[in-house]
Design a protein around this nucleic acid. Structure first.
Lengths: 346, 346
DNA sequence: GTCCCGCCGGAGAGCGCTCGCCCTTTGGCT
DNA sequence: AGCCAAAGGGCGAGCGCTCTCCGGCGGGAC
């Protein structure tokens, strides 16, 4: 039989003070006589006291926990659930996100609860989890446009912060990148190195990020006297990038520069160019986007537009915390600046 | 001002029954008259009731939460902390673990709390987290032998389950692979395809897993008339595998088969062989271990010994749950059987 | 010397839930 | 018809903590 864990009461008795005083010392609230503080700390040490969080949460109405949820796929089969989780985990994007989030949380002795919500029932579970007060708020990473989760949470008035501006306006705080500026950097770099017949491969055009990258690229090309830019739509995967490149090449064989809207597609582009005997960057220069792991492992290493994922994720956590503490009542947005990272491919 | 969330009391009033009855319906405990059940469910629906978990946890003394902790590095700098987390997250191993864990947890509406404990202070935080009852137990993945965390937890009597047998005996439940059998499969496969001058590259020999793989490999080779096997120690990384292969080749140029104790090292081996103009598998056959992501992405794809990571992780979660529920008082171990996956490299 | 104010410790009321206990009702058996 | 057991609902005591309010005490100002 294991002995009951020591409570505030036990410590108070041991130190010869009241429960309230011990609580004040533990939480560092209000002034307490140094001598008494000392006595209390001693008593805590001796009893091996650890505050019961459930009891505290009950009265403070705060779990001191936040959820990190990846929401996405539309299908509803159990097998797919697992596949969804592994797919997300395999993405280098995810590691940088988690890393940024824990950088913010750790100093506060908080740790994220990991949730994958690939189905509608799973999304309901996320809502239930928050409504039960098991977490105070959620960091949402949607893999698709039109993810219903933000709306669900907003309508329940549950604190959350999104990664990327939602496709349809939802009154929710989010963090995003200045995609247009990123695309501008890519365009300027390609033009500066002498490319004259430049094409672009976009992401899925229902995603605002993909739209913005395309718009920013076109704008800049136009301003520099290239009003017509060949465009092919991809799906943010290696294969879709390769396929798009094949399409582009068959229509515009003389292309000497490509801006792919993410690194995975840029990798597909490089593969196709290699197969077709074109050298990168001598014959065709390639610029990617994200600066993910593949950018360095790719042959040649990719020149790419860097998203400061860690900082973005850490900022999300900070904004969520502010929202939970009620420091803000209107949703905000924080937009980060991209940065060009020049490597071998352009 | 947001209205107070509905409580059991509110539902009880709405349904015209007592708090206890509502609780019984919610938790499905004891028989309750179907008509009353119906009424209660209606009332829950109408009020939009969600049980407050903190209150429940306070009385049941259970958080219904488990921690997934990766414990490892020895250094104590903040920067290193981040690096530790990203390194772990980048490892394909990790994704399969999480996937297996959530497969067990999801049907129970539980979600893992992610903790990285790369320093002693971080490990203390893990202990504190559990002692405060924020999680009921921990799944421990140690990256190094002699990780102090299992001992810490065991001495505090906190439920935990380890991945892999600890280097020094600790009375704690764990899950492991029959490494010797895995190595035997690799040896037999190499011999069966006609290799006669076979070497092996081991993992860090302070790890029991690395020792067992080596022992199993040697045993089998010996039983088949090859008492002497060239051995080089590696560090479970691509680079260390490449370096070890270079050492082996300079001493034993006629090698026609290699067993690397994990896939990353096998990849390093393939790179070195390619650079030196030896064909895989025609000139030298290579067998890896783990069946991680690199096994498929490697050129050629690796023949390897598969660890059923997902099942192992799910089993860990199950064992932990049993431990928490007090269904077992003595630590156990569950050992999984490896499986040979034949691909291009051998 | 008196009064007031500020500082600090204690008392006690809950936070929302579960669970042991008791009481009522009902149905089957003698 | 009477009895008893079992089923089902209500009561109330906490779980361990925070926080408001209150009271006591000491010091400075008049």
């Amino acid at each position: 039989m294991t002995r009951r864990a020591p409570t505030l009461e036990d410590v108070a008795r041991e130190a010869g003070v009241s429960r309230a005083t011990v609580s004040r010392v533990v939480n560092g609230i209000r002034n307490v006589d140094p001598a008494i503080q000392e006595a209390v700390r001693d008593a805590i040490e001796r009893t091996g006291y650890a505050p019961n969080r459930a009891a505290r949460a009950l009265v403070t109405r705060r779990a001191e926990t936040i959820a990190l949820v990846v929401s996405g796929a539309r299908d509803d089969s159990e097998g797919e659930q697992d596949a969804f989780a592994s797919r997300v985990l395999a993405d280098p994007f995810f590691g940088r996100v988690v890393s940024g989030v824990i950088r913010f949380l750790r100093p506060r002795s908080m740790y994220p609860v990991l949730m994958f919500a690939g189905t509608d029932t799973a999304r309901q579970e996320v809502v239930a989890y928050l409504r039960q007060g098991r977490a105070d708020g959620a960091l949402i990473f949607s893999t698709h446009a039109e993810d219903p989760l933000p709306v669900l949470l907003a309508s329940e008035d549950l604190p959350c912060v999104l990664f990327a501006r939602p496709a349809t306006p939802v009154p929710v705080t989010y963090v995003d990148l200045a995609h247009r500026d990123g695309a501008r950097l890519a365009a300027e770099h390609l033009l500066a190195r002498g490319c004259r017949r430049v094409a672009t491969i976009t992401g899925p055009l229902d995603l605002p990020a993909a739209q913005d990258r395309l718009a920013g690229f076109r704008e800049t090309m136009e301003r520099h006297g290239h009003p017509y830019v060949p465009v092919a739509e991809g799906g943010f995967t290696v294969e879709s990038g390769a396929a798009a490149m094949n399409r582009l090449l068959s229509e515009h064989p003389a292309i000497d520069g490509v801006f792919a809207a993410n690194d995975l597609m840029a990798q597909g582009v490089c593969q196709v160019l290699h197969e077709r005997g074109r050298r990168v960057p001598q014959d065709v220069a390639v610029v990617g986007f994200d600066d993910s792991g593949v950018a360095v492992s790719c042959r040649p290493p990719l020149t790419t537009v860097r998203q400061p994922m860690e900082e973005m994720a850490a900022t999300m956590a900070r904004l969520l915390q502010e929202e939970i503490e009620g420091a803000r009542d209107e949703p905000t947005a924080v937009i980060f600046d991209p940065e060009l990272v020049v490597r071998g491919s352009a």
